[in-house]
Design a protein around this nucleic acid. Sequence first.
DNA 1: ACTTATTCCTGCGTGC
DNA 2: TGCACGCAGGAATAAG
Length: 277
Amino acid sequence: MPELPEVETVCLALSKILNNSRVNNVKITRKDLRWNIKENLETCLKEKILKKPFRRGKYILIPTSEKHILLIHLGMSGTIKIISGEYNISKHDHVKINIETKENKFFSLVYNDPRRFGYVDFFHVNRIENHFLLKKLGVEPLQNDFTIHYLQKKISKKSKCVKNFIMDQSIIAGIGNIYASEILHRANINPLRAVNNLNTEQLKSIIEATKFILKKSIKVGGTTIKNHMQPDGKLGYFAQKLQVYGKNKHNCNKCNNIITQINISNRSTYFCNNCQK
DNA sequence: ACTTATTCCTGCGTGC
DNA sequence: TGCACGCAGGAATAAG
């Protein structure tokens, strides 16, 4: 369930050690993730210099000084461990990258993904705009171009419900099932509402709530429910701050009404039908 | 050109 | 104790 805050957390941790670190070797122990990892990843990455990573939606992008990009998607259950010292490959470890920092410290980056919905790719930077996973991505919700005008433009011919709308990666990049429920609760909007029926004030409140919730979660290292952990092994602590996700039959913290759980497009959805209209 | 359903996968909780 | 089953959901792809 890594969504934007979890991916950002991993990215921040990686950026501390990936600052002109050199790849000594790469070992793929299992290549059949969501798609097969390219056969030549091991040789392509070897001896490359990895620069500071950045995030796009739910993707981690690690540039090399040779103008390539190492792309990592965590899927549903992916984690990246940063290991210093000896490490024995354990179950569901699929890729291990041994690096040496410019301070001559040695680390292993270990990609682990039990359900194998994630992906690891490597391509030239000039393909970044046209990469099949990146080209359709919508706005970054924490950047300034996530505006009311942007949303109104995207809504024009959409009739779907607001929850599916904000989870659509081609509209807003990075929101998944957990944060969708949390955002709409903060914005006081019922997740079933048709998005083309929302007024300007409501759209504004979605933007405010999105930025607020995502930033707040990043501050505490994301949400750990099952798999997410920070690369140093710490958990994410936003689970303790969730207001509605997984809280069916609990009381709403705003109005004390009982939180409802419903299914929207086969995804569990939680909301308060008293304060979310 | 849309929207909706299906598909991939493993771990965990539940019921018999 | 063990087995069958349902559920969790990111997102491309197939089907409608």
